[in-house]
Design a protein around this nucleic acid. Structure first.
Lengths: 230, 230
DNA sequence: GCGCGTTTTTGTCGGGGCTCAAACAACCAG
DNA sequence: CTGGTTGTTTGAGCCCCGACAAAAACGCGC
């Protein structure tokens, strides 16, 4: 375990409450692994052999339906635990996680979890909180899908991306990784074509700025108003 | 704590791995509370003062949007923990839970959780597993809402209800609590009218049998085929 | 038994958004 | 530079499903 990792780790909210010794104990069974852009971290249906904490980069989590359609479940940002909720009891990963930029993650073997929790009990609470908050997000998504029309869903998705991975640039706030309109469509349960039309309309209104695999939100406040009220 | 409760409790999968003494410790801070049909167990936005295990009955969990639309998030069946994921860190309930039949639940004050976990560590794992499995369900719901048309969503919702609360009757399997087409509509993100039409069509085909606040699935196998393939 | 409210059924109509189709633009490898 | 690949835009048509309306069926209280 490199010193670099340890300093990165201690800056993560998940490990915030832990002393240096506890951090060492937590890291005892972990490796840190690089995932180049485009490479899978784990794949839907494969045996759940590991759980993770993302140190750097961004991951896209995708579910594939039996009919072959893809749905983007979420994006993972640095500091988040993932692959943990899932594998308690379940033998296989329920989705595929792919690095959308070069990424770095801590990797524990699944078998290390019970031991880890007994040595660092705070981790159990941390995990429960992480999963609980993710459950809330998922339920919120269900509510959105049930009640809102496409344009507002796209607005909400964009705002979520800005919050998770917004980087200030000249003209506004840019999503900090390559993202296609197809991806946005798979996040919002619509089609590439509809997303393209909506973004074009917004660009005409000066709300956003498009580009190949690029979205810059120029006026987050107005986008928020669009998402909340009609 | 009545003896009746203790025997009920020990039959719950959540407490299955625990010895009699551990069960007593777990129940030390709990009360058992009756909720008559129609009464709220907790309400969206209220302070999260308690967490629960349902012993008997059925609860409907509903989220209300700012615009006033209702979405049925899930139904709670006996043996399930609820109100737990939510309140780790979050101060208020994110949804409203209402008893759809006379129900009985164990109620712990939120403050008892840390102490409870330290005395019965297995509960932390149990909670994590519960929440994890619920997260999976929620993601599955998102995928359904994103990719499937209304009829298949209704079929899936019905199958879920049958699995959770199916009771064998003369002509098939009946949902074991009063449920309106409006409820089904709010589960599937559609309208009362569309649900009514779909159920009428299915009734003509001998798939289900309708009635006031009643649904009987006569041919679960064919319904399943409808849900999976087109 | 009777009236009333709730739930369900059924019909018609219109529109949002998906499907199909075809250019167009940007990036990459060679 | 050039051809191929990937991503984006735009148009036309149509269908599913939601909005509106109204009556019928059922249950409940009196």
């Amino acid at each position: 375990m490199a010193a670099l990792d340890r300093s990165l780790v201690s800056s993560m909210p998940i490990f915030a409450g832990l002393g240096p010794q506890q951090i060492d104990e937590a890291l005892a069974d972990a490796r840190s692994v690089r995932f180049p852009k485009g490479s899978p971290v784990f794949e839907q249906g494969h045996e759940a052999t590991s759980f993770f904490v993302l140190l750097h980069g961004h991951l896209q989590v995708v579910k594939l339906t039996p009919a072959g359609q893809q749905v983007v479940v979420r994006y993972v940002t640095p500091g988040e635990m993932f692959g943990i909720a899932v594998q308690m009891g379940r033998p296989t990963y329920p989705a595929t996680a792919t690095a959308v930029v070069d990424s770095l993650a801590l990797v524990w073997p699944s078998s290390a979890w019970p031991d880890l929790v007994s040595r660092v009990p705070a981790l159990a609470a941390s995990a429960l909180q992480t999963v609980g908050s993710r459950l809330n997000e998922a339920h919120q998504r269900v509510v959105e899908m049930s009640t809102e029309e496409v344009e507002r869903r796209v607005a909400h998705a964009l705002l979520r991306l800005v919050k998770q991975a917004g980087r200030k640039v000249e003209t506004g706030i840019q999503i900090d990784f390559p993202i296609t309109r197809q991806d946005v469509a798979e996040m919002t349960g619509t089609t590439l074509h509809t997303v393209s039309r909506i973004l074009s309309a917004w660009e005409d209104q000066g709300l956003v700025e498009g580009g190949r695999q690029k979205i810059v939100v120029k006026d987050p406040h107005r986008l928020f108003a669009l998402a909340e009220r009609g």
